[in-house]
Design a protein around this nucleic acid. Structure first.
Lengths: 133, 133
DNA sequence: TTCCTTGCAAATCGTTTGCATAATG
DNA sequence: CATTATGCAAACGATTTGCAAGGAA
């Protein structure tokens, strides 16, 4: 099915481009609504799904029960802080290498990968030390 | 809070140990129920969560909307076939190395990681060739 | 005009939870 | 006896979907 232009989709995509914190559908909704009050949550979900299906954005699951979205579709890793729930990017040069090795070892065809690290971010580590005083 | 023994939990864990295909909560439920008809879905969920929280099993999210569980808690990767929905293990020796590099690069503290490859498995590739004849 | 998109609201569905009862230590 | 676990069913919450109306090509 052909895709037709829609202002809503454009705004959703534009918004995602400005963010590096991998917002959820709800965050996208709340923000886009500031500029376009009539937009509905359903439309946001529909467009995020459409964009992700076409590979224009990334759908990220870090295990907090909510999908996150990323306009940066280059191969990279994520870090999820189990304390504050923040999702950050992580560049590891061995990622490409791992992809190659995986394809060599796999009898099927690999299209993409998702790598996520879990732990506690610097800020939250510091904060917990702070609270122990 | 202390953990007390329960036959249900034991059976859930035992079942998971026999499977290498990373079953979902529902699959665990249906199977354990064969031997223990009174068990409830809630109990299955509660115990899978408890076991995962204690690190005795792994909760895996491959993006199909359902959580999968794995009794093998060693560091390894997964492959998800978008065709048949199957989840398989993948051993890559560079995984340990990647973990080390990630920890070096990360200012926070990394506890674990999750790596999943997406694509089409051998069987499904063959099947689609078959269908084209 | 044709087909894609939207807003709205209702429906889905995997997972969680409250509660009274049963089992464990 | 104190505490944790269970079964059941209801509640939750993120995401999806049906439908009538609006917008793009």
């Amino acid at each position: 099915m052909a895709v037709k232009y829609s202002r809503q989709r454009q705004m959703i995509y534009n918004f995602l481009m400005t963010r590096k914190d991998h917002p959820t559908a709800d965050v996208v909704y709340k923000n886009v609504r500031q500029e376009y009050p009539n937009i509905s949550l359903g439309t946001v979900y529909r467009n995020l799904t459409l964009l992700a299906d076409r590979g224009e954005i990334l759908r990220i699951q870090v295990g907090d029960g909510v999908d996150h979205f990323d306009a940066d579709t280059s191969r990279h890793c994520h870090f999820f802080c189990s304390d504050c729930g923040g999702v950050t990017d992580m560049q590891l040069d061995c990622v490409e290498d791992m992809f190659t090795r995986a394809q060599q070892k796999c009898s099927g065809k690999i299209e993409s990968q998702s790598i996520c690290f879990y732990g506690t971010c610097r800020k939250c580590l510091d904060k917990s030390v702070e609270n122990q005083k």
